[in-house]
Design a protein around this nucleic acid. Structure first.
Lengths: 222, 222, 222, 222
DNA sequence: CTGTAAGCGAGACGGTACGTCATGTCTTATT
DNA sequence: AATAAGACATGACGTACCGTCTCGCTTACAG
């Protein structure tokens, strides 16, 4: 790893709602947490966001509604947590070249977004998040940031390989990461979820070309 | 094929649900349609998708629920129609260069997406559309295709200016339009609605550079 | 009937909650009212006050909970109305003597209080009424006053027969009616519902004797 | 049978649920019992029967719900015990004449029934008791019988004074006590709790006259 | 003096009913 | 035939208590 490279740190990627500060009474059942999240994902895939009801999730999980509400104040927060774990499977591998790395991660992302529970959940969460700043923050922490971290990682790998020059300054680097991240995530989501067209290896190749082409014109970037 | 061949045609951009075939009894009030759509946009901006109720829209519009349901079968279709007209203000102007044209349309789109009723509606519609194929079709017809048409227009303008070569074949052209469209729409939406960061002229400049850079490396594209 | 006798007027003894002032929309289903009151009495007899739930009443009546709540704001008011009609069967007959009249009405009252739905309802209503002045007023209007009216009637009959002298003044007459009424109703209820002992013809005879004995000592009464 | 024969014995008038047979572990806190009963009476006066919840009582008493349920199986039994002690204050004094004795005890009873916790509790208990035979038995033991004992006492006092003749036979005596008791208790309760009218010295005088008048016509009684 | 058995506060648990709300349909009378 | 008004069946909502359960901690008697 290059000497001055930014030292990205993966944000925490799990942890149920919040650990109760101290245990006085009966401790919360850990099994219930898992059962609820599983039930949420299952219901989500079957019924979609609109069809998902708290009561149904509770029933599927073999849990009382109260137990559910004790942990998650609303459908939104519940689904964030239930869905967030799906994104844990995304990972940046080092395939030896920037193009290969990008294509791999785009393919991973596309595969993930093709799953019905992800489709139903992701846009719905974004939609709700556009109204509720707290939810938006939670989405960002649990879903978006972990994804962005992949871009940081890929960039660092490319720098250590010498494909990219070192960061000129932190601000510019952050902006570059932002724009690349929004472009990858936004474009893939839009094609799959809005345009409703499949993401093929050929499409990935062409899209990666688009992403990589500025590297031949470094003077224009920024 | 001649350079200017592609003869894009703007799809119909308005028209309330469907004109009743012929009038026997009392004709439908045209004023009601407008009042309903206005009320929908107003309620949408105030309450967001989740807070919007049919009863409330009817009350705001000074109309009975019956009247509302007679015209639009559900909340989804109503909001599509109410929101679609907002997108009519997008238009491709000819500023003399491809970069300027792109920057202008991106800026327009960003401005539109900054309005609260658009924010509330767009992602919510996409979310609902991911479950309901009919709604998806309707969204595509009324909202997505008119936007994609702008890309076609811009491309045609650039070709007529000589900035872009003529279409090699129709399929490739359509694919190029698709990828550019998904990239522009997806990226702008993701930055504004998911990442929650503003779209500034500087960002537009950098993003446009990304879009334009493949043009300097035509051998790599595709 | 004697010339100056007080002219008692039976209070209204039925009428669902309140007639909606004027009918603009769809009128309320009269069948629903009856079905609900029947269902209430049925559920009351089966499950008692504590076991009676609004949801269950609605289901039995084949009616939505909303419909039920639209008419009666709470279990209390509903049961008042459901039970009040049971008391309509009480009536003062003229058997030719004061003793016979009293014994007849006490027997009627005892028979009514032996029915399970009456037992379950009456004390529960009184209990709730001890907290809620509005409910108390309603109970008084719909249940208590119609009973007291029987005492007035019996007194008037006895006066017209000459068994009782005419009223000396209105206040004293009202007080006498009150004390007789509270004694009859309270004693019968206490024996049946609290002491839990049956009311037999012999008991009625002895109790009536108690009620009538002051008539031999008119100088002491008052 | 000799005049003073009847040897009435006052039933036990207190004692928390049941003393655990023998102590192995930590003994139950006696303070908790008192705190719970106090809290119950307090909550009863404030919130009435319907508003009283076990959790609230526990909180007021500074006690865990478990502790409460370990001692009383349900709200009913708890309230019986909490209220029963209120009736301990009733006592038959010897004022030298039957009329004075009756008027005194009626006044005591009326005063007791004027207290809000008594009002809230008494009818509610009777109501619940009309469904639950076990509760009814408990009410009878703890509340009703101690009251009836006062009638026995008063009767015995009058007999020892010579105001009343000796018992003819036990059955008739018991029936007379029953009828007098139901009449006093029922009438006072009905006037206060159902009719909702105050009990004044004048009313007590008139009511006592009613009770005493059969004594002037012994041939009719029975 | 150390088990061990019960009591205790706390609070999570599976339930059940609550009373409210929005949906989309229906019945009126009116236009 | 369309309209405004509003009743209707349905079904989810989020809350409140219920009575039970599991914790970790005192007590107190027993060996």
């Amino acid at each position: 790893m290059a000497p001055t490279t930014q030292q990205p740190v993966a944000p925490d990627q799990a942890a149920p709602p919040a650990t109760p500060p101290r245990g006085k009474g009966r401790p919360r059942s850990a099994a219930a947490d898992l059962a609820i999240l599983d039930a949420t994902r299952e219901a989500l895939a079957e019924l979609g966001w609109g069809g998902l009801t708290m009561g149904d999730v509770a029933t599927r999980a073999g849990v009382a509604k109260t137990t559910l509400y004790r942990r998650w104040p609303s459908k939104n927060e519940l689904v964030v947590d239930a869905v967030a774990s799906l994104f844990d499977e995304l990972e940046m591998v080092d395939l030896g070249s920037l193009r290969a790395d990008i294509e791999a991660v785009v393919a991973q992302f596309a595969t993930l977004l093709a799953r019905p529970e992800t489709q139903a959940a992701l846009l719905a969460l974004f939609a709700e998040g556009s109204r509720d700043p707290q939810l938006r923050r939670r989405i960002r922490e649990r879903i978006v940031e972990p994804q962005k971290y992949l871009v940081q990682q890929g960039r660092a790998q490319a720098q250590s390989r010498g494909e990219l020059g070192p960061d000129l300054d932190e601000v510019t680097a952050a902006e570059e990461i932002d724009i690349i991240f929004d472009t990858i995530a936004g474009t893939v989501e839009h094609r799959l979820l809005v345009s409703g067209r499949p993401i093929t290896p050929a499409w990935i190749h062409r899209f990666t070309t688009l992403l990589l082409s500025p590297l031949g014109h470094p003077q224009e970037a920024g």
